[in-house]
Simulated assay, not measured.
Amino acid sequence: MTEVPVGRRERKKAATRQAIADAALRLFLERGYDQVGIRDIADEADVSTTTLFKHFTGKEALVFDQEGDREAELVAAVRDRPAGQDVLDALRQHVLDTWLPIAAHPQAAEFNDLVDSTPELRAYAERMWTRHAGSLAAAIADETGVDRDDLVCAALARFVLEIPSLARGRQDRRAAVETLFDLLAHGWKPPSQPPAHP
């Protein structure tokens, strides 16, 4: 008997995980978060609840199924950036490459409404955001050779993570992201005022 390659097993696990997450989001958007139970999601994905819990820690985690990958990618954007590229430029490119497609997704508004209107999901998102900020600040500190509790690195990480939220409602999201990174790169300058007329 031949052994199943590890790659196939991992692909099958990833496909099951994605099917569960897709089923959960579909049900949450159709019925509302509070009206959907774990059993409903397992049935929709055609898996047992035991299988569901092998992939997800709880109901909130089903909504943010890719956040572990996003956190790792954020840190990698800093640590694995090309030689000669500074940290801020690497983060700018990462946000443009990863967040703009997410923001343009047809279900983005529905997803944001679901999170914003559900206290448990808002709280989970806040804990996740704080964890991401800590990981990113540590990566920035490591790359710049300062202590991991450096205040400037912590502030930069928090601001970078806030950029998608600040740019979300803008008509030209790319321009908004660029403007906010320009602010970080060059500092704040008061908006120019038209000259006063006598």
Rank of each mutant, 00 (worst) to 15 (best):
A45H: 07
A45Y: 04
D46E: 15
D46T: 12
V47K: 10
V47L: 07
V47T: 03
S48I: 05
T49N: 09
T49R: 10
T51M: 00
L52W: 09
L52T: 05
K54W: 06
K54M: 14
H55C: 04
H55R: 03
F56H: 05
F56M: 04
F56W: 06
T57K: 08
G58V: 04
K59R: 06
K59G: 03
E60C: 15
E60G: 07
A61Q: 10
A61W: 06
V63N: 11
V63P: 14
V63I: 01
F64S: 06
D65L: 10
Q66C: 12
G68M: 13
G68I: 06
D69P: 06
E71Q: 12
A72T: 10
E73R: 14
E73Y: 06
A76D: 03
A77Q: 03
V78M: 01
V78P: 01
R79A: 06
R79D: 12
D80W: 09
D80F: 08
R81A: 01
R81V: 00
R81C: 00
P82R: 05
A83V: 13
G84H: 01
G84T: 00
Q85H: 04
Q85K: 10
D86M: 02
V87M: 09
L88A: 09
D89Q: 11
D89K: 10
D89V: 01
Q93Y: 05
Q93K: 07
H94N: 13
L96W: 03
L96K: 07
L96H: 11
D97Q: 08
D97P: 07
T98C: 10
W99E: 15
L100M: 06
P101I: 03
P101Y: 09
P101K: 14
I102R: 15
I102F: 15
A103F: 04
A104I: 01
Q107F: 09
A108T: 03
A109H: 09
E110F: 02
F111S: 04
F111V: 06
F111E: 02
N112Q: 15
N112A: 11
N112P: 14
D116C: 11
D116Q: 03
P119W: 02
P119R: 05
P119G: 01
R122W: 01
R122G: 07
R122D: 04
A123E: 14
Y124G: 00
Y124L: 01
A125E: 12
A125H: 11
E126S: 11
E126K: 03
E126T: 10
E126L: 07
E126Q: 09
R127V: 05
R127G: 08
T130A: 13
T130F: 04
R131L: 15
R131Y: 12
H132I: 09
G134W: 02
S135W: 03
A137P: 10
A138E: 07
A138R: 07
A139V: 09
A141T: 05
A141H: 08
E143G: 15
T144P: 03
G145M: 08
G145N: 05
G145T: 09
G145I: 04
V146H: 11
D147N: 11
D147C: 07
D149W: 04
D150K: 05
D150I: 13
V152K: 12
V152A: 15
C153P: 03
C153A: 15
A154K: 08
A155N: 05
A155G: 09
A157W: 10
A157S: 05
V160W: 00
V160E: 01
V160L: 00
V160D: 02
L161G: 09
L161I: 12
L161E: 04
